[in-house]
């Protein structure tokens, strides 16, 4: 049985790249069609301590299971490859 994989998109209210990233990441997750993958949005302004703790220096960024994994928007292939590792590792 697959374990939960939590994907967090770290973004800000108004950056255009973040909006694009939100759409793209949700699209990629939908495409994966895996019920154990969960998507969350983390706004830097409201959760700056958490973002700094993760090591985020720019937005958008993507954390998986509480670890900073992508510091820019990945391609679908990269996203799938990394995610597969997390799903297998769990």
């Amino acid at each position: 049985m697959n374990q939960e994989v939590n994907i967090e998109l770290i973004s800000t209210f108004s950056c255009r790249r973040c909006q694009k990233a939100q759409e793209k990441v949700q699209e990629m997750i939908k495409e994966l069609n895996n019920e154990s993958v969960f998507y969350h949005e983390v706004n830097v302004i409201n959760h700056i301590d958490y973002a700094v703790q993760l090591g985020v220096l720019r937005t958008p960024a993507i954390a998986i299971n509480g670890k900073l994994v992508f510091t820019s928007l990945p391609s679908m292939a990269q996203f799938k490859k990394i995610l597969a590792r997390y799903i297998q590792a769990e």
Binding site: F13, S14, R17, N43, I48, L57, T59
Partner: peptide
């Protein structure tokens, strides 16, 4: 330092808005 670096990067990363100020406004 990292917190300020993140905030500086946020503000310079977007020409139209400063998320710090937008956040405060919100």
């Amino acid at each position: 330092k990292n917190e300020l670096q993140l905030l500086v990067n946020l503000c310079t990363g977007d020409k139209d808005h400063c998320p710090i100020l937008d956040g405060f406004e919100e």
